[in-house]
Simulated scan of single mutants.
Amino acid sequence: MSASVAQLKHEGSPRQVVVAGAVAGLVSRFVIAPLDVIKIRLQLQIHSHSDPLSVRSVNGPVYKGTLGTFRQILREEGVTGLWKGNIPAELMYLAYGGIQFSAYTYISHLIEAIPAPYTPPDSATSFISGATAGAAATTATYPLDLLRTRFAAQGRDRVYPSLIASLKHIAQHEGPTGFFRGLGAGVSQIVPYMGLFFATYESLKPVTANSPIPLPFGSSDAAAGIIASVLSKTAVYPLDTTRKRLQVQGPMRDKYIHRNIPKYSGVISTVLRIWKHEGRRGMYRGLTVSLLKAAPASAVTMWTYERVMGMMLASNEKLTKV
């Protein structure tokens, strides 16, 4: 296996991988939180400009475009409105980052242990490891993802007064399965997304490292992360929209900022209904801000991961010399 592909998998101990992944997820989430809120608000919006709106006595959607959504949230909910759902999201990213990178490393080692000539090529190893790691991290942290979406979907009128209150309400009125609404769409999305992301990232990293052109963020890691994220996110975006629509189902569905969210049940039926009533635009609503979010998020994640891992390895090296 080439050194470029093996680098991410063989750096650091399992504990260091978990720490670096968790820190990377935490930092990344804080940076992109406002874009995440904007994306969720747009994904839950089903109206075209000609449709009457149930939330207000006007025609048209609640939000119009990324900048319009940003300004409206600031005007009506203040700066803190852009960080709604940040507490469960930070917890999710903290856990997600650690689980994702540790699972990626573990699965990669298992695949590399397969004897020749059955050892898969580097690209297949990266895809399988990334997809498996993404599925494991998504499932383990899904309740936090659902809470993030529900809090981000709240307007000035709170649906849930606190995180604890939301946990109690969902448990009481929706049961344990209520915390996993839309998990099928989440896993269906994350498996190809993370597989494509890691395979593209590992392939582009040696190319960007030797690029004669100045790279964004001054790092080949960041540039490779940006390109890999944009390509992967666009490919699976309809499933992300489906997941968000399913996550706000339940007894509080008509109390969010979009009070006429349809009732959905199941991944396939949701995809078909969105396509039938909203078309391709409905499937990709919020894609622009999603790509704006995905690029810096992945760049910050990979850049932070590599730097934190580097600092820990350097620290260990100094200690061994003492």
Results as ranks from 00 to 15, higher is better:
Y142G: 07
D145I: 14
L146C: 08
L146M: 13
L146Q: 08
L147H: 03
T149G: 04
A152V: 04
A153M: 10
Q154F: 03
R156A: 15
R156G: 14
D157S: 14
R158G: 00
V159M: 11
Y160H: 12
P161G: 10
P161M: 11
L163M: 03
S166N: 09
L167F: 04
K168E: 12
K168I: 15
H169A: 13
Q172M: 09
E174D: 12
F179P: 10
F179D: 06
R181H: 15
G182T: 05
A185Q: 03
A185R: 01
V187M: 04
S188C: 14
S188H: 00
Q189G: 06
I190G: 00
V191D: 00
V191R: 00
V191S: 07
Y193E: 15
Y193P: 00
L196N: 08
F197N: 06
S203H: 10
P206E: 05
V207D: 03
V207N: 05
T208H: 04
A209K: 08
N210C: 11
P212Y: 07
P212Q: 04
I213C: 02
P214S: 13
L215G: 04
F217A: 11
G218W: 10
G218V: 08
A222T: 09
A223F: 09
A224F: 08
I226P: 07
I226W: 11
V230R: 00
S232C: 11
K233E: 13
K233L: 14
T234K: 03
T234C: 10
A235P: 01
P238Y: 02
P238S: 01
D240N: 11
T242S: 07
R243F: 12
R243P: 01
K244F: 11
K244N: 10
L246N: 01
V248Q: 01
V248S: 06
Q249Y: 09
Q249N: 07
M252D: 12
R253E: 13
R253L: 15
D254Y: 13
D254A: 14
Y256R: 03
I257M: 03
H258K: 02
R259S: 14
R259Q: 15
K263Q: 15
K263T: 14
K263F: 05
Y264Q: 05
G266F: 09
V267C: 04
S269Y: 06
S269D: 14
T270L: 06
T270W: 05
V271W: 04
L272F: 02
L272D: 02
R273E: 14
R273S: 15
I274H: 00
W275L: 13
E278N: 06
G279M: 10
R280K: 02
R280G: 03
R281A: 14
G282A: 09
Y284D: 01
Y284N: 07
R285N: 14
R285K: 13
